[in-house]
Nucleic acid binder design. Sequence first.
DNA 1: CGATTGAGCGCCCTCTGCTGGGTGCGA
DNA 2: ATCGCACCCAGCAGAGGGCGCTCAATCG
Length: 647
Amino acid sequence: MEVQDDIGYLSMEAVDHHDDDSQSQELKEDATYYVNDEENDDQEQYLYTEADVQEGTSSGITVHTRETEDGDPEVLGIDDDDDSQEEKEEYETVTIVPSQGESGEVSYVLIVQQPEAKEKEDDMKVFEFDEAEGDMQQTDNEEDLDDKNTVKKATSTPKKQTTATAHMCNYCNYTSPKRYLLSRHMKSHSEERPHKCSVCERGFKTLASLQNHVNTHTGTKPHKCKYCDSAFTTSGELVRHVRYRHTHEKPHHCSECDYSSVELSKLKRHMRCHTGERPYQCPHCTYASPDTFKLKRHLRIHTGEKPYECDICQARFTQSNSLKAHRLIHTGNKPVFKCELCPATCGRKTDLRIHVQKLHTSERPLKCKRCGKAFPDRYTFKLHCKTHDGEKCFKCDLCPYASSSQRHLESHMLVHTDQKPYQCELCDQAFRQKQLLRRHQNLYHNPNYVPPQPREKQHECAECGRSFRHKGNLIRHMAIHDPESTAQERQLALKIGRQKRIQIIDGQQVEVMDDDDEDDEEDEEDDETQMLAVEGDDGQQYVVLEVIHLQDGDGTEQTVAVVGDDTELTTETVMHDATDMADLSDPNLMSQLTDASNDGFQSSLTEDKLEKKVAVKHEMVTEDDVKTCFGFDDDDDEETEETMDYY
DNA sequence: CGATTGAGCGCCCTCTGCTGGGTGCGA
DNA sequence: ATCGCACCCAGCAGAGGGCGCTCAATCG
Ligand SMILES: [Zn+2]
Ligand SMILES: [Zn+2]
Ligand SMILES: [Zn+2]
Ligand SMILES: [Zn+2]
Ligand SMILES: [Zn+2]
């Protein structure tokens, strides 16, 4: 944009301090130098930052361009939402004239003329800037940068270079040993532009610069890249292109880090990362940007401008990359970021980072409540907790009983305290569990209670022809036939075989079941309808009246099933080692048993037969040594009811 | 004197990374 | 019902690359 070009330009030449600040940051500091007399207040100085010039906020000190050709509509667009818009439409004239100070030093005067005041000299604002002071006010940053990067211009240390034979410029501190060089240099202070472009009227000081300019009109690019097909108007552009694209030569190195750049201006821009400098203040909020582009981009959030439109859904975005990310929604090829510490994957890098932060980092170690071990992060902690699954960590202090569930241990402790908190209001019976009380009330105090019918045995084993009412039982049964069965499963099968011989129900396997469905979640609220049915291989129906866990001195659990069939009641005892059971791979097995081992029971039998069995059941329960055990691996809701084969 | 070199400003682009609101699902 | 978590998405800032153009200084 010409505005910055001209002003920055003038300041650099006239004040002759180093042009080491990239882009128009120069302006701000120049402005600081200029304003050292009658306009010498901070506010006035501030008005001269480039941001302000660009924003048009410099109340009255407006921007000018002599060459209207390159007026950048986008930059003007930034100004559109500014309150001094009308001022920007009238360009001012900026000229620079030398003036001799008393001390012999040369000063310069920046004359800002408002267009409507062009005929009236007294309306001009005149800023005088002193070159000596300007030099003194060079910031450390700038000098450092120059020193470290050896990009000093010849004019940067004019006084030192001055010798008796040197030819000095009166307009700046340019010196040269040759007179003709000085005279050529003086042209740079001339505003004369004798070489006019025939296309756009613009004037140039030299024929060469005019020729370059004309080439931009005609598209003539005489300088061809020898590595690729690119071509450029000037040789400088070509050299730069080659460095960027082919040789990657980066002559400018950062003294603070390992950054280096092709262009010095890029290094200067980069240095703001180290200094934190943010010269471009947003006029609408507190944001300040380190460069003009970011400010311009930022301004879109105030103007609402959304230049990027999705060609598929017409959604609009303020940034190109937002559109790019959005377009992935339509194309569907989404990247996958895999966590190195666990199997998790995330759709975006950021999400993966959050995942790692949440699961794989922890301020302090996490301690396992069951075993006290500490873990550095949530992931290993959770993994560890899984290892406790099926483990009976909650041990009774008074007997060898152990359970994986604290709830079950608490329930078990009622045995030791001889508590039965659930008292039937209609009779003297009391129970240790609420659901047992409910069943009792159904059976004894609810004449309308109708026990559910047993269902058909729909699930038949393809190997041996045996059929089951519940698919889960069939699946479990299939392990017997499976040669690939795991060692644990074979162990179970062996155990089953061992246990068979102590069964007293016709020497046949029986199935413990209830009527709740393990396959689908129908009748969830139906916890009134539990029953324990025992089914022999002969298809004979038994009813489990009681499943009781006894524990002897060495921790071996005995499961006692009290069963009955249509005609008689039988007591069946199954011995199994509690530790072995904990090793079984099927945790459901035990939970199923647990749910079956309740004080109350229901039966599909007729009312009068129920009477008979209840009597037997109560006999069992009143045995002092018999301990009802709820403590199997039931991590789920205590109302959960599943089925099992019971041998 | 023309050509070259290097600096400088400006514009635009991409890649990157963070934030914060929202949703679905399983524990 | 609630929470944790993976996932989704838009918004937006930081940093840097590349080029168009101009000009002063210097070179040959
Ligand atoms: Zn032109
Ligand atoms: Zn090339
Ligand atoms: Zn650096
Ligand atoms: Zn803002
Ligand atoms: Zn879209």
